[in-house]
Design a protein around this nucleic acid. Structure first.
Lengths: 240, 240
DNA sequence: AGACGCATGTGATGTAGATCACAACAGCCT
DNA sequence: AGGCTGTTGTGATCTACATCACATGCGTCT
């Protein structure tokens, strides 16, 4: 089957090959079957909005493919990007469980495949299965953990340079690039968006990148960036 | 029975009168009995450290009485206070579930009564009881929710005044004072600590308070503060 | 091609708030 | 009383960064 956005949909969670490495999908057969019965497999184009902060929670969204930008917006138009969510993550969990409004806005940044589960179906499902319930607790713990990291980086660092360096190191540690002496990473966001991730202005990000390049710490060809001097970057990240 | 710190210990969760209004304590009889069997009732003096960020998780701490300061510290000596936890809250949950290090440091600010549960006991307990597991998910959701609020306030506001006003309003909304035209609140922290809560310097907090008093927005006698002009404070809180 | 729309790069300027360095007060304890 | 130690209150200075205002580059639509 081919989705509206030129993406093959994985029809069933039971046969999904990616299951094992995904925290939430790896359930025992019976639970998985129950989940299968209440989930809706859906596909979204790039730039689709799954939900908006402040909305009454409709249910949860499990990312199967693609990535989703989570952001917090102020009425005055400012926006802060909290996280880029990857496949396997469950979005809207805490709101769905508590019944309080979604706390972030979720917007796809590539074409995405997503499993949606309605709130009451999901709650019923949880109450019936300890395993699933435990997985949810794990996921929420993970989310809390990330939020703490965010708070730490926002609250404890004195300079934008520090935060940018931290972000680059974090990105570079994905895909097993972290171990390499000169890790590479794909910059998938604009300077504007990076600025929103670290709570600074676009111009500052541009200038900081220029600085890093001048000092030979990073180097960029197109949208891929190479970290040439990891230790220097690390020393910027840990203050000063 | 009298605890070491002149505080009467509530010996059993089964007979605790506070149970109903506490999110985690309000469990069905069987689960509560199980919990009863694995918990250790302990008492701490003011200033005691329950756990430190980075430590391997030993287990969870349920606050029964007193309040606990949760903070995040940087190696360079800076510290950011994340939250003041009140009775009914469970500390160290996410770390205990994931096995990753505690993400914050917990330090009592009054004499406290705390129920401690060892990690493996707790995990076993959870796997046996969906209800409890669900409560845990709720608690974690709550924590995530708070962390998001923190991120919003740190990331989206442009001035320290804004953050201070938000904090005061939040504090004033406790104890049902929020509804009153001129809510009162006890300032239980020093300017230094308030500064650490909103990510600014002590001097700035002092100056901001002086400003608020001069503009007749608040008024303080000793450690209690009266908000005389709620709407003005609110307009400061929502930018500018 | 040219032209429109975005993403970048870079200079000039203004300002909130950090930081330093004290002074003025508490409570305390002896 | 008088000396501690911890909390406030204020002034002077310095700087990182926001903000404004452009210039430049780069892809893609016609």
């Amino acid at each position: 089957m081919l989705s509206p956005y030129g993406m093959e949909i994985v029809e069933s969670c039971l046969t999904c090959k990616l299951r094992a490495d995904r925290i939430f999908c790896d359930l025992p057969p019976t639970a998985l079957q129950n989940f299968e019965n209440i989930k809706f497999a859906t596909a979204y184009p790039q730039g689709a909005v799954l939900f908006v902060e402040g909305q009454v929670p409709r249910g949860i969204f499990v990312i199967c493919k693609g990535s989703v930008k989570l952001s917090i917006n102020s009425p005055s138009g400012r926006t802060m990007i909290v996280k880029l969510a990857e496949p396997g993550e469950v979005l809207g969990l805490s709101a769905t469980i508590s019944g309080k409004p979604y706390e972030v806005t979720a917007e796809t940044i590539d074409p995405c495949q997503v499993n949606f589960v309605k709130r009451d179906d999901f709650l019923r499902f949880l109450k019936e299965d300890v395993e699933a319930c435990f997985k949810v607790a794990e996921q929420l713990g993970e989310k809390y953990h990330n939020a703490c990291k965010e708070v730490r980086s926002l609250g404890l660092s004195h300079s934008a340079a520090e935060k940018l360096a931290t972000l680059l190191l974090e990105w570079s540690s994905k895909n097993g690039e972290g171990a390499k002496p000169e890790p590479r990473l794909k910059i998938r966001l604009t300077h504007e968006e990076i600025a929103q991730m670290i709570g600074t202005s676009r111009e500052t990000v541009t200038r900081l990148f220029a600085e890093l390049k001048k000092r030979q710490i990073v180097q960029s060809k197109g949208s891929t960036m190479v970290i040439r001097n990891t230790s220097a970057l690390r020393s910027i990240a840990n203050h000063n």
